[in-house]
C-alpha cells in the first residue's frame, strides 16, 4: 500500500507542477480569449463570480463565445505577423546552428583542462542583464555607432550602413542572444561522443571529412534538435529584440500582441492570439517529438 502511495506521489508531483504552471495559466488565458472587451477593471466581461451559485456559472459560460477567433481570421495582420515571426525565427535558428556548431565542436575537441574555461566564457554574458546586452547593440549598430566607425576607418564602406531598425539588426540580436542555447546542448552531445568510433571510421577508409559527415554529425543530431528548439521557440515569440533593434516595418507576433494588449486594450483578442500561437507552435512540436521517440524505439 505504502509503496503504491509513494509511487503515486512521485508521479503526481511533476503532473501537479505541470497543472499549476501550465494548464491553470493556459485555462485563464483561454477563458479571457472567449470573453468580450469592457471598459472596466479588469477590461473584459464576464468575470468569474461564485456568489450567484450554479445560475451564475451557467450565465458565465453562456456569455463566452468564439467571436475573437473569428475576428483573427478576418484580418491578415495576424497571419502575416505569424508567418514573419516564423521566418525570422527559422533564419535565426539556422544562423545560430551554423555559428554554434563549429564553436561547440572546437570546444569539445579542446584539451580537457581548457573546457571548463571555455564553457564559462559561453555562460559569461548571462551575468549581465539581457535587456542591457540588447541595448548595447543599439550603440554598436547605429549609424554613428562602433561598427560603422570601424568599417569606415578600415575603408570597407564610404557611407555608414543603416543596420539598426532593420530586420538584419533583429537577426543579429536574436543570434547573439540565443547562441549559448544552441552551443550548450551541441557541446554536451559532441563532448560525450566516443572517440573510438572516429578511429574505427578512419581505419575503415574514411577521410576525416567524410568521417565527420558519417559519424560525428549523425551522432550529434539530438544536440542539434535540442539546440534548435531552444533557439526557435523563444525567438518566435520574441518581443524585446524586434522592439529595440527592429524597424517600424518589422512584423513579429510579439509586437502584434503588445499592440493588441496595450494600444487596443483588447485583452480578449490578445489572449486569442496567444492561444493560437501556442497551438500553432506546441502541437507540431509535440507531434515531432512523438515521431522522434518512435523512430528511436524502432532503432532499438
Amino acid at each position: 500500500m505504502d509503496r503504491k502511495l509513494g509511487r503515486f506521489l512521485l508521479i503526481g508531483i511533476p503532473y501537479f507542477w505541470l497543472f499549476l504552471l501550465f494548464l491553470v495559466p493556459f485555462g485563464i488565458v483561454l477563458k479571457i480569449s472567449l470573453s468580450d472587451v469592457a471598459v472596466a477593471i479588469p477590461p473584459y466581461t464576464p468575470t468569474f463570480d461564485l456568489d450567484n451559485g450554479w445560475e451564475g456559472i451557467k450565465a458565465f459560460v453562456g456569455n463566452l463565445d468564439f467571436e475573437n477567433y473569428v475576428w483573427l481570421t478576418e484580418d491578415d495582420l495576424y497571419w502575416s505577423s505569424y508567418l514573419s515571426s516564423l521566418k525570422i525565427a527559422f533564419v535565426s535558428t539556422v544562423l545560430s546552428l551554423l555559428i554554434g556548431y563549429p564553436l561547440a565542436y572546437s570546444m569539445a575537441k579542446a584539451p580537457s583542462e581548457w573546457r571548463p574555461t571555455l564553457l564559462m566564457l559561453i555562460i559569461l554574458p548571462f551575468w549581465t542583464s539581457f535587456l542591457i546586452r540588447v541595448y548595447a547593440w543599439i550603440g554598436i549598430l547605429k549609424t554613428e555607432g562602433l561598427l560603422n566607425q570601424l568599417l569606415m576607418f578600415v575603408g570597407v564602406v564610404d557611407d555608414p550602413l543603416h543596420i539598426l531598425n532593420t530586420d538584419t539588426a533583429v537577426y543579429i540580436g536574436i543570434v547573439y542572444s540565443y547562441l549559448p542555447f544552441m552551443v550548450l546542448p551541441l557541446y554536451s552531445a559532441l563532448e560525450k561522443m566516443d572517440g573510438s568510433l572516429l578511429e574505427a571510421a578512419q581505419d575503415l577508409g574514411c577521410t576525416a571529412i567524410s568521417a565527420f559527415w558519417k559519424v560525428t554529425l549523425p551522432l550529434s543530431i539530438p544536440g542539434i534538435i535540442a539546440g534548435s528548439f531552444l533557439v526557435f521557440i523563444p525567438a518566435i515569440g520574441e518581443f524585446v529584440i524586434p522592439d529595440l533593434l527592429g524597424g517600424s516595418d518589422t512584423k513579429m507576433i510579439g509586437k502584434t500582441l503588445w499592440v493588441e494588449f496595450f494600444s487596443n486594450r483588447d485583452w480578449p483578442v490578445a489572449s486569442a492570439v496567444a492561444v493560437l500561437l501556442l497551438l500553432l507552435l506546441i502541437v507540431p512540436i509535440v507531434l515531432f517529438q512523438k515521431q522522434q521517440e518512435r523512430a528511436q524505439e524502432a532503432e532499438q
Binding site: V37, D75, L77, S248, D249, V259, S263, N264, R265, D266
Partner: peptide
C-alpha cells in the same frame, strides 16, 4: 470607443509598416 480604436490601431500598423 473600442471599435474606432481598433480601426485607428490597424490603420497605424499599416502606416508604420508601409504596406
Amino acid at each position: 470607443d473600442p471599435k474606432t480604436q481598433r480601426v485607428i490601431t490597424r490603420l497605424w500598423t499599416k502606416v508604420k509598416s508601409g504596406s
